[in-house]
Nucleic acid binder design. Sequence first.
DNA 1: CTCCTTATTGATAATGATTATCATTATAAT
DNA 2: ATTATAATGATAATCATTATCAATAAGGAG
Lengths: 138, 138
Amino acid sequence: MKKYSRQRELILNSLKTRTDHPTAEKLYLDLKNEMPELGIATVYRNLSELCDEGHIIRIKTSIGADRFDGNTMPHIHFKCKDCGEISDIYLFEMQMKKLDNDLKNFAKGIDAEASGSNITITGLCRKCKLNKKGEKIV
Amino acid sequence: MKKYSRQRELILNSLKTRTDHPTAEKLYLDLKNEMPELGIATVYRNLSELCDEGHIIRIKTSIGADRFDGNTMPHIHFKCKDCGEISDIYLFEMQMKKLDNDLKNFAKGIDAEASGSNITITGLCRKCKLNKKGEKIV
DNA sequence: CTCCTTATTGATAATGATTATCATTATAAT
DNA sequence: ATTATAATGATAATCATTATCAATAAGGAG
């Protein structure tokens, strides 16, 4: 039977309230301030469980450690090629439905049945776009 | 200055002709038959380079080692939740253009500039769908 | 409240995947 | 041929994550 734990609540709560997408280690270091006895294994363990249970989302990146996202509302991600930051992109319900429908049809094309999807757009974020412009001027 | 190497050619060639999406180790083991002196570090090294140069694609999976895809034609991936197999889904030019356009617009929504994307649909592949049906009958 | 079962923890060892190091070898220009 | 250096292969090192396990904490039952 599942038991309550302060650690798990802290981890989930923290992920639900912060809007960045921290790695397990970043989250561990941050939470260690609030709960110094916290162990890093506990963080990894709970993050994996919370993913399995669908309370949070694991984001694989092409380099480095996995990131975690407490926001389970359907959304897609944008990763900046320059600064590496990952941002959320929320779609309007209509857009999301259309996209969902498209993906389901693509899967049908190979006789498969879609149940989920993972979309990451890459490119330049707003900040890095501005930086690039600055470079050209000088 | 870039120099030719038999190993790199073998690796790239192999990936271009096979349609599965092998891990670095799988590829290494297969190629070791053709070239017994091949080292696994060489495989990892060349795979990373070939990715950087855009000749192949790295596929991150939610569990286990990265997979590599010699097919750089625009396409998306389908990963079966049951058997873990990764298949290619090719879109018609029209579909692809529409999808591309949609993604570019989503990025614009956060003032970002899209230059690429990574789409993986998850669900049940054809084979595993049939297996599931078989289970229910018995 | 106290006892008891067992889920969960934290420390750390182990693992898996990948990258770094470095002496040796292969490539290509002179 | 000679030479400069890119690339290799063996292996050590690193990084991220999971497994192990004794100690602790949660939450019934009596």
